[in-house]
Write a protein that binds this DNA or RNA. Structure first.
Lengths: 337, 337
DNA sequence: CTGTTAGCGCATTCAC
DNA sequence: GTGAATGCGCTAACAG
C-alpha cells in the first residue's frame, strides 16, 4: 500500500550526516548550526518528507493528540463545546480526536479503550445517559491519562469537572414562569443520575419552594429529553392533571410538548407556558419561539480544555469549575393575557 | 505522568516465558498451545494490560484508524454522514477520527497533515468551500493513503467519489416550483467550484429550460448558503426585480430569505414560493414549513466508508457513486391560491 | 556543533 | 510449541 516513505535516515544519507542531526535540525534545536538546520529543512521539503508521528509518539511516550468523547456530535451544545475546545487546543499544538458514544455505554467504553490504546495525551468526556458502570473512567485514571469531565459528569470519579450552572438556569427559568403567573408548573427532566439533570431538577424545586408554589409529583417526569417522549408524556398526563406550564431540561422535550399542545389547540403562551434548556438554534425558529437557557457552550469548551492542559502540564487545576448560563425569554413563556 | 504501563514484557516475566509467546498468545495465534493462550489472556486482564496501539502501529506500519475531514460537524447532513461511516467502520474494527475544517483551507491542510503524520489507514474528505489549492489532496495520494472524497469533491483529484444526485434534486425542486405556477424563479447557489453546488445549479437550469421558463441572471446568486447572506441577498434584489420563487442550494439561505420575506409581509407560499436543500431538521419546525431535498446522508456515509474499505483492501472500487435524493414538499412551495 | 548508542513496545522471521 | 534476534522511525543521553 503505502509507497516507500521518506525517513530521516534517507535525508541523512543524502546530506551525508546522521539521523540524529536531521532529527535535531527538524526540531529546530539550536545546537545544530543555522546553516545545517536550513539545509536539512529544505531537503526534507524537497524529498517530500513527512514525519512519522507514530514513531515519535512511541519514542517520546506521549502524543500530541487529545481525545474527546461526547454523546452526540449533532447537538448545538456539544458541537459548540467542541469548537471551544479546539480554540484552546489547536494553538497549543494539540490535535483533537472526537468520538461519539451515541448515548450508548458500550460505545463509550470502546471509545475510551481506543483512546487509551492510542496513548492520547488526555481525555475530555461527557457521559452518555445510559452509562451505569464507571470502570472505564477509572481505567483512564489508572493509565495516568489526564481526564476532565464536562457537562454530564460523575462526581465519584476523581477528576476536574467543568459544568454549567444548571441549578441557576433552572431556577431562573422556573422563577420566570412563576412571575408570569402560571400556577401549576411541571417539569420534564433527564436522568437524575446525571448531575446536569439533577441540578436542573433542584433549581426547579428551589424556585417552586421559594415562591411557595405547590409541587405536584405527578407533573414531574424524568428521562424525558427527546422530542418523542416530550410529546407522548405531555399527552399522557395533560388531560388528567391541572397543568399550565412546563420547565423542560431539554429543548427537544419542550419542542415535543409544544407540538402536542399545538395539535390540541392549547394556546401558548396564554393558556400554557413552556421553557426549554440549551438554546438550540431551532428555539428561535419555531412558532411560538421557545424560551430557553443559553449554556455558553463555547466558553465551557475552552474552560474544559484549559483545565486539561493544566492537568497535562502538572499545573494546579481547579477541580470544580462552573460556567454561567443565561435565561433567554421568548414568546413561549410570556403570558400575555 | 503516565504510571508504569504494563507491557507484554511484564506479562512474560510473570509467566516465565518470552514476550514473543505473549504477543502471539494475545493475537490468538494457534501455534501457541490453547492452555498458554488462555493463561496469557487471563494474566493480561489481571495485570491490567492495555496493548500499546502506537507500538503496534509502528511495527505493523499501519493503523486501525480512519480519518475523516468535514467542513462542519454541526450540520445535520454531515453528522448523519458521520454516523453512516461509523456504521460501516466500527464493525470492521476501525476507529474513526473526525476533524473539522470549519470551511477553512488552512485548517483543512493542517488536518490532512495531522492524519498523515498519524499514519491513518485511510481518509474520507468533504472539501471546505474556501479550498482553492488541492496540493494537500495530492499529498494524501502520494503518501499511498487510500482516499475517498464525498459530497464536496474535486474531480481533478484521482480518487473514488461518492456524491448525491444533486442534479436530480435540484431539477425536482425547480420543476415543482414551475408546476405550482411560479413564474420568476431565482436561485441561491453555493460556490460553483464545488461540484455539489454546480450540479444543483445545473439541475435548476435544466428544469427551467425544459419548461421554457425565462432565466434571469439577475435572480441567480452564488456563494449564498448562509442564513445571513440568504437574507441580505434577498432584500438586495427583491424590490428591484420581478421574482416570486427561489430555489436555494442551502436550507440556511432559504431560511434567511424566508425570514426576510416574513418581515416584508410577503405571504409564503401564495405570493412567493421557496425551496431549500439538505432537509435540515429545522425545515419542518419553522413556519411555514420549508420544502427541501433529503440527501440520504446516512446511506451516503455508508457508501463512502465501503468504498474506502475496499480501497484499503485493494478490492475494486466504483470510482464514481451516486446516492439518491428525495424531494420533500412542504408548505413553503405549495401555491394555494 | 555533530556522531554514537540505545531503546520506546510490539510483531515477525528464523531457529530448534 | 516456544525462544532469540531484529527492526519499525524516531529521540535523547552521552561523548567529543
Amino acid at each position: 500500500m503505502s509507497t516507500n516513505r521518506i525517513t530521516i535516515k534517507d535525508i541523512a544519507k543524502k546530506l551525508d550526516c546522521t539521523p540524529s542531526t536531521v532529527s535535531r535540525a527538524l526540531a529546530g534545536n539550536t545546537r545544530v548550526s543555522l546553516k545545517t538546520r536550513n539545509l536539512v529543512k529544505k531537503t526534507a521539503v524537497e524529498m517530500g518528507y513527512r514525519p512519522n508521528a507514530i514513531a515519535s509518539a512511541l519514542r517520546k511516550g506521549k502524543v500530541d493528540t487529545i481525545g474527546m468523547i461526547v454523546p452526540r456530535i449533532n447537538r448545538y451544545f456539544f458541537s459548540n463545546v467542541i469548537s471551544g475546545v479546539e480554540d484552546i487546543l489547536n494553538p497549543a499544538g494539540y490535535n483533537l480526536v472526537i468520538c461519539q458514544s451515541n448515548e450508548n455505554e458500550y460505545k463509550e467504553q470502546k471509545a475510551v479503550q481506543t483512546l487509551l490504546q492510542n496513548q492520547v495525551g488526555g481525555i475530555l468526556i461527557s457521559l452518555s445517559v445510559e452509562t451505569n458502570n464507571y470502570e472505564h473512567l477509572n481505567s483512564i485514571i489508572a493509565s495516568g491519562t489526564p481526564l476532565v469531565q464536562f457537562d454530564r459528569v460523575n462526581l465519584n470519579i476523581e477528576s476536574p469537572i467543568v459544568i454549567n450552572n444548571n441549578f441557576e438556569g433552572a431556577y431562573l427559568a422556573t422563577e420566570y414562569l412563576i412571575k408570569q403567573g402560571y400556577k401549576n408548573i411541571g417539569h420534564f427532566g433527564g436522568n437524575p443520575k446525571i448531575m446536569a439533570y439533577s441540578e436542573r431538577y433542584n433549581g426547579y424545586i428551589k424556585a417552586m419552594n421559594t415562591y411557595n408554589m405547590n409541587i405536584n409529583d405527578k407533573l414531574i417526569k424524568f428521562d424525558t429529553i427527546t422530542q418523542e417522549t416530550g410529546s407522548s408524556e405531555l399527552i399522557r398526563f395533560f388531560n388528567d392533571n391541572e397543568i399550565d406550564a412546563l420547565f423542560c431540561s431539554s429543548d427537544f422535550a419542550a419542542l415535543g410538548a409544544l407540538e402536542a399542545l399545538n395539535k390540541m389547540k392549547v394556546d401558548i403562551p396564554s393558556e400554557f407556558g413552556i421553557i426549554g434548556f440549551a438554546n438550540e438554534p431551532f428555539t428561535k425558529l419555531i412558532s411560538p419561539k421557545l424560551s430557553s437557557v443559553e449554556q455558553n457552550s463555547f466558553k465551557l469548551g475552552r474552560t474544559a480544555a484549559i483545565a486539561l492542559l493544566n492537568s497535562i502540564d502538572n499545573k494546579p487545576v481547579e477541580t470544580n469549575q462552573t460556567v454561567d448560563v443565561e435565561f433567554i425569554p421568548r414568546q413561549s413563556s410570556n403570558k400575555s393575557i
